[in-house]
Design a protein around this nucleic acid. Structure first.
Lengths: 289, 289
DNA sequence: TCTGTCATATGCGAAATTGCATGTCATGGG
DNA sequence: CCCATGACATGCAATTTCGCATATGACAGA
C-alpha cells in the first residue's frame, strides 16, 4: 500500500486542468514538480497516466479512474477542513466573508467597523464579489447573498427583505415630475426585453436608452443623469439618487447571511452574525422603504 | 486548501497505532519522520492533535476527527488500487493467492506447478495461512477458503463440496476393526464438548483423549497413532491415514475460490482460475469420497 | 519564412525532508 | 536502589525534492 496520496491529488488536478502549468498554479508548486510527480506516479502504479501531446497532457482512462477516486478523497478532505474549525473557538485569527460589492459601501462598511472594534484580534478578509464562492471549499466562512431562497444545504438567516424602485439623478427626477408626458429614458440591463412592465401603464412612452451588464455601471449612468434605472431601494438612496414614482416599488430578492453547517457555529462566525443581524434589523427601512 | 494528504494519513496511522515507532513501522519510515510530520500537521491545522505522554502519543478529539476522515480517504485509495488492476491485463507480473495451509501440500501444489509451467512470466506469491486476508486491501488477489457460504461482496466460485470422516493411523484402524468393543480414543479440538455425536451411537465408549487448537497438530497426533480424529476426507487420505467406519461421513464446508469484484476479471487471476477449477473438478472424489 | 507564444523537457544549485546516532525521561523488575 | 526497557526529543549529515534558468518543438499569424 505504498501509494502516495499527494501524488493522487496531483494526478487529479492535472486531469482537470489539462496542462502542467495550470495544474502547478492550482497546487502552488512549479510545473516542473508536477511533471516529476506524474512520472513518479506512473512508475509506482505501473500504468501510463497521460499522453504527452504538443498542447498538453491528455489523461488516459487510468488517469480518469484515479481522478474520480481522488475527487472523492478531496471531498473528504474538504469536509475535514470544515470539521476542524470546531476546535478553533477563539475570537482571534482569520475570518473570511464575502458580499456583493454594492452592499459593502452602503451598509457593510459600518458593520465591519463595529465588528473590528469589538473584536480587534480577528483578522478579517472581505471578498467583495458577485461570484458565488464555494462555501463547501471554505472559500469564505460567511456569505452575504441576495437571493430568493437559501436553497443550498447551507445554514441561512434572512437579514432583510427588499424592494426595487425606479431612481434617477435629482435633476432628472425633477424634470420628470414637471413634465410627465415626455418620453422616459431607461437605463437597462443587457438581458432586459424592455422597460419594467409596471412602468408602462403610467408611462407608455418609456424606452431603453442604453444597456449595461453591471450594476455599478448602471448606478454611474443614473448618477450622470442619463436616465431612469430600476434598482434596489437601498442602492438608489445610497447612490444619492431620487426615487421617481413611475412604478410601484416591487418585492425583490431577500438578503441572506449564509454559512456552511460546520462553520456556522464557530466562534468568529457567530460573533460576526451578532453584529450583522441587529444592524440589519435597525436599518430595515433602507431596504423596504 | 494547503492541506497535505499524506500528513492526514500519518495522523490516522498514529491515532490507530498509538506510538511513533509502531506508526513509523506501518508507514515504512523512521519514527523521527512521523514525529515531524505530526508537528507540521499541527502547525498547519492550528490545532493540537496529540498529547505527548510518557507511554506514547494520545489522540485528542481533533485527531480522532482527522483519523475518521482519513480512514474514508484510505478506503477510496484502496478501491482505486483495485480499479487500476483492470489496466494491467498482462500475463506477466505479480499474482498473490492465499489458501489454508493444509490444502497446499495435498492439492494446490499440483495446481501451482501446472499454472507456473503454463505462465512462466507470472511472479506468484502464495500466502499459506488460515487467517482471512483482507481482499479489499488487496492483501491477496485470490483466496481459497473453506467456508459454508461466500457471504461477502466477493466474487466466488465453489470448487468442490467436502465431507468429514473419522481417520486413524493404519495400525490403530486395524485394531479398532478387530476389537470394536474397546474404548475409542479421540483427538479433538479445544472447543469440542465431546466426541462427534454420530459416533456415540455405535461407539458409546468414545472419549476425548487429547485436544489441540490446530489442525496440523491433530493430523500429527493421528499419524503417531494417538487416536481417532475427525477431519476432512482429503486431509485424512493425504496424511496417509485410514478411514475408520465409526461414523458416517458428514457434509462439511465447501471449498471456494474468492476474489474481489474488481480483481476477479483481470488476466492473471482468470488464468489461475482456469487451472484451478478444472483441477478440482477432476479431483472431486478426494473430497467427497 | 520569420517570429512570438505556449507547451514540455532537462541540468544544476538551493531548500526541505529524512534517517541515524545520541540524549532524556518515566516505568517496572530484581 | 540500580538498571534494563520502551518511548520521545534533538543535532547533524545524507538524500530527496524542488524551483529556476535554459533548451526544444509545435503552431498561428504577420
Amino acid at each position: 500500500m505504498g501509494m502516495e496520496w499527494d501524488d493522487l491529488r496531483t494526478v487529479m488536478v492535472l486531469v482537470r486542468q489539462g496542462t502542467l502549468a495550470a495544474a502547478a498554479a492550482q497546487l502552488g508548486v512549479s510545473y516542473t514538480t508536477v511533471a516529476r510527480r506524474i512520472a513518479r506516479a506512473e512508475t509506482r502504479m505501473g500504468t501510463r497516466l497521460f499522453d504527452r501531446l504538443p498542447d498538453g497532457y491528455r489523461a488516459t482512462k487510468a488517469a480518469l479512474v484515479v481522478a474520480e477516486r481522488a475527487g472523492r478523497m478531496q471531498q473528504e478532505a474538504e469536509t475535514l477542513d470544515r470539521e476542524l474549525t470546531q476546535f478553533d473557538d477563539d475570537l482571534t485569527g482569520p475570518l473570511v466573508i464575502t458580499s456583493p460589492q454594492l452592499l459593502i459601501g452602503s451598509h457593510l462598511g459600518e458593520v465591519i467597523e463595529t465588528f473590528l472594534t469589538r473584536h480587534p484580534g480577528i483578522d478579517l478578509t472581505v471578498k467583495a464579489t458577485n461570484d458565488l464562492l464555494n462555501l463547501n471549499r471554505r472559500e469564505a466562512d460567511l456569505a452575504i447573498r441576495i437571493q430568493r431562497d437559501p436553497h443550498d444545504t447551507l445554514i441561512g438567516q434572512r437579514l432583510t427583505g427588499q424592494k426595487t424602485a425606479a431612481f434617477a439623478a435629482p435633476a432628472l427626477a425633477q424634470r420628470i415630475a414637471q413634465d410627465p408626458a415626455q418620453p422616459l429614458d431607461w437605463i437597462g440591463f443587457t438581458f432586459w426585453d424592455g422597460p419594467p412592465r409596471d412602468s408602462l401603464v403610467a408611462y407608455p412612452k418609456g424606452r431603453i436608452r442604453m444597456r449595461f451588464d453591471d450594476m455599478v455601471a448602471v448606478v454611474g449612468a443614473a448618477q450622470a443623469g442619463l436616465g431612469v434605472a430600476r434598482m434596489p431601494m437601498f442602492l438608489g438612496r445610497y447612490a444619492g439618487l431620487t426615487m421617481v414614482p413611475v412604478m410601484e416599488p416591487q418585492p425583490y430578492a431577500d438578503i441572506w447571511a449564509l454559512s456552511h453547517r460546520d462553520i456556522a457555529p464557530t466562534a468568529r462566525v457567530r460573533a460576526f452574525r451578532e453584529v450583522l443581524i441587529p444592524f440589519f434589523r435597525t436599518r430595515a427601512g433602507d431596504f423596504v422603504g
